[in-house]
Every structure is written in C-alpha cells, then in structure tokens.
Design a protein around this nucleic acid. Sequence first.
RNA 1: CGGAGUGUAGCGCAGACUGGUAGCGCGUUUGGUUCGGGACCAAAAGGUCAAGAGUUCAAAUCUCUUCACUCCGACCA
Length: 569
Amino acid sequence: MRWSKTLLCTLREDPKDAEIVSHKLMMRAGLLVKLEGGLYSYSPLGVRVLHKVENIVREEMDRAGASEVLFTALQPISLWEESGRAGIMGKSMFRLRDRNDDTMVLGPTHEEVATDYLRTLASSYRQLPVTVYQIQTKFRDEIRPRFGLMRCKEFVMKDAYSFDIDSDAADISYQKMYDAYLRIFRRCGLDAHPVEADTGAIGGNHSHEFMVLAPSGEDGILHCPSCRYAANQERAERRAPPCDWATPSAEPRARVATPGAHTVDEAAAALGIASDQVVKSLVYLADGKPVMVLLRGNADLCEPKLRRALGCSEVEMADPETTARVAGPFGSIGPIGVSIPVYADNALKEARDVAVGAGEEGFHVVHCNLMDDPDVKIARWEDLATVVAGDRCPRCGEPLELARGIEVGHVFKLGVKYTKTMGFSVLDAAGKSVTPVMGCYGIGVSRTVQAIAEQNNDKDGIVWPAAVSPFQVALLALDPKNPEVAAAVDALESALEKAGADVLVDDREERPGIKFKDADLIGCSVRVTIGARSLEKGGAEVRLRRTGETTLLPLDAVPARVAELLAAN
RNA sequence: CGGAGUGUAGCGCAGACUGGUAGCGCGUUUGGUUCGGGACCAAAAGGUCAAGAGUUCAAAUCUCUUCACUCCGACCA
C-alpha cells in the first residue's frame, strides 16, 4: 500500500481524551478515529491489526476443532426472557423495536442464540461434542466506556460455545479452549496469564480469565510467587490471618463511650486497641433486602464474594436511612441484637475478644465474644474479605502479590444453566433424554489489539509484534522524486511482497525526519529505508523497530534479511 | 447513578478572576529556500467561544439550565 494513496493521519501531540499509553499511541498513530465515547472507527491501518488478530484467533479455534459460524447481532428479546437473563443483563443491553413493535436487542453476548442454534440442529449424542465460534460485533451499553478500545459500547469479540454429553466430556472441551487461548495470546506477542475468576452475569461454576499484566489494567490479580496460584481479586481466597485475641477476655462485655469515633481507626484509637480488633460492621442490600456483614477492622468487603455467598444478583451498600433503621447510625453499627441476617468473614472465626459498634451513636461494645455471644446471631460464616498484597496464599501459605491486569479472554464452564432452562436435550446411547453440558469462551478481539499496544511500546511509539503489525514492513522512500530511488523502491516493494511480506510504502513528499518519526510511531516491525544516500552506499537500510538494530544491505539481499527478522520477532 | 474535572480553529492550549470587536503553537493552502530523525522565510484560509435562557449599552468572560467528553466507584471481552 502506498501512503500517498490512503488517508493516514498521525498526530504530533497526545489527544486530550486519552489517558493510557496504548490509547494515546493508537490515536497518534492514526489507527483509530473517535466518533463518540465508546465508539471508534478503525483506519485502514487499524483495521489491518484487527484482522490479523482475528485471523490468529480463527486459526487456533479451527486447530482446536471448533467450527466458525456467524450468528445475528440482532436478537429477539424472547430468547432472553426464556433464559431468564432479560432482567440480569437488562441495563447493559441495547433494546429497540421493529416495525411490528416487537422488542429486539443488539446482542451483548450469544449464549442464548448458540443454545437455540444447537437445539434446532442437534438431537443425538452422536452429534456431540461440538464447539462453534464466531467473530462478531457485540453491543453493550457500558456504564462507563473508557480507555479507547478497552471498554467500548461496540466491540469485536470472538465467542465460542461448547456442548458435551456430560460433565467429564465438557471438561475436555474446556481444556482445549484453555490451551488454544494460551497459543492465541502467545502468537499475538502478549504475555497473558490465566487466573481464577468470578463468573458474573454469564453464570456457571468455574472460570478462568486471561490477563495481560499492565499497570493500567482494570482488574486486580493476586498471584503467588511460590506455587503459581493466581486469581482475580474479585474471587481470590486467602488463609485467615493469625488472630491475637482468640481467648475470651476475663472482663465482661461492656458498653464504652467513644464520642465522635465513626471509623474503625477512630474507634480503635478511642478504645486504645488495635484497629484489627475492632469488627467492621456493614449493612448491605442484597437484591433489596438488608443484611449485615462483619469483617476484621482492617479488611474490606469483596462485594462479588458476598453476591456469590448469598446467591443474589445484586448487592449494594445500604443507604443511611435503612442502615439506621436496622442497625443503628453509621459509624456505630454493630451486630448485637439486630434482626437482619448477619454474615461474618471466616477471618473472624477465632475472634473471642473484639470490639463492635453498639448500634447507638457514640458507643462501642468491648470484650465481645462473637462465637459465643447469645446476642450475636451469625447466620453464616463465609469468605468475604478482599484479599490484598501480603495476605497468605490459600494453597501454600506464602505471601501473595498484587498486580493489575487487562482481561483479554475468559473461559467458563457453564454446566446446564442454559441448556436446561432453554430445553435443549439429546438422546444418549441408551435412548434416554439428557441435557448437554455447555461451556463458553470469549476473547475481546478489539481489546486484545489495544492490550498488545499497551504491552509493546517505547518512547517513540508502538512496537508491533510481527504477527500483528499493520504492515510487516515500512518501506521509506526518502526522495520519491529521484528516479533511481523510485525505481529501487518499486522493485523492492514487489520483491518483498513476492516473499510474502506486506509493505507500506511511505512515498509522501515529506522530509526524512517526518518519515522516520511516523514510522516509529506506527511501529511496523521492520523498516527499510531507501534514499539517494543509501543507494550511493550500496543499497537499502534495514532496521528492526524493536531493537533499532540497523544494517545496510544490497537491494537483492533485503527480502531474505527481512524474512529472517520477521520470523524472529 | 454518586464524586471530581474539562468544553475556545482540524489537533494541543491561552484569554475568564477585573465584561469592551478572537489569540498562540502545531497542522492546512500558496510562493521561495531547504532535504537522512518532527526545517526556515513570506503570505493566506480556517471559530454561531458546547447549547439554551438571563443580567448588561456591551458576554468567550457574570448568573441559571441543559448537553457532551475525561477521570475515580458499581458492570464486563
């Protein structure tokens, strides 16, 4: 492709809207054009990267035995009512009406459509296992789109769905996808790590996310340096920290004035004890019903854990009025004598001598024995605390480390959640009707593009891995009007393309400095420069973007050298 | 939805407190000199100052309302 024949515009300065490095660089390199928040057009350059990632995904899905299909983006709401997700996905699903006034949705995901597709086609165990996948535009009315392609209202996703006759077979399908994901991200030049994850609105009982480590990532990841345990912070577990007050106090339970103390730290200071010895009591609304949560004073509640523990679909902190009504004023909440269900974090199991809010402004109760106090009714003990850096690994006990990650892929074991509710069954070998076991597997393709840029850049611009570089080679014609240069560029372009490389020829009438800067910014893996000067010295200059390593070669030796560099990068 | 911030030329910004005919840099166009790491000189084009209402002789500037975008939280590939 000739630069002069396409509309490629680079930006000299960072756009004001962009916050993270990949977003800035993709905008500056002219890969994206913003239409609105969460909506971006791909330029001729950007769409090439997208297609390259798509093709890697396609090849690895095919290799793993999945079959490509294409579902519709537009779906009838009735499918979602059938699965029971119309409510759960409700707010993030774009809805519209057709001319018959029927409600349609723009698919945020395709579990329902996939299940419907299978139930219309499959009726025998002999047709299973089967895994279908598609690369589709998804629509989600995101609460907050951000960071360019990272979180968009419209984005490209690869989603796959496996159907198996039983759970053991489903595990095999899951593992195939898991392995394929590792290969896909490796081929994209990404360092992506599988971590145990929460299943969220998709549902199911087991899932892994594939995380690209980056400080700008939206998720916290706890990982253990000694045993390789890794989990999303929404789900990570820990061994309960040691407890220094596991023996009941000799003193009786007592009400103590703590005027003005509203936080755990203030209460601890007023009482002259460690903040961890003060129980943090929170009132939450679980699907609208108030519940109390107890944690150690220095722990934070992990809301997804609470949601899972309670089996509800939404939890939120209760408003001050509700809190005051069921448990006393903010800052003095406590579990003694409350009538709502109380859920306590496992780390409090040994607590025999702690302080709690008295349920009354300005008072706390000390020497409370949570386990045995007749006025404290713990409905259930659960793992509810957010795990933080330094907490002990649930597997091996070593301290965990915290990192940030970008979620580029997610694999789920769904069980029979959709197949059962949507009435998909097949006959097994004995002629008995069975409900197939399902898995689903997503890759955020457009997000992956940006994650690659986030992980592969330097002060001059993006450094695309060769497999996804918009063009593998940027061929700079430093003086396109010089006939010798033009002839050499033409010849080399053909030779490179014949050798299987794709080439962007910068034939603009610009000064050399501009071409070098733009080439660095766009980040094609290999740069080949031809100018009067290089011809005088005997050929063309070949430079690897990632290292800056440069060699001057005779023109006919260039294609082989380029191929060598591309293969190694 | 809650909290914070920003809207002025294609892009990045100043001007606002103290109201008085719209500025700078980059980019764009034309001419010239340059030409291997974002050149220089000269000339030019380009703006209902986010929108609406109000105050005023006069509003980018003061007041109110609305909208959009960005950031922090809940949602997720």
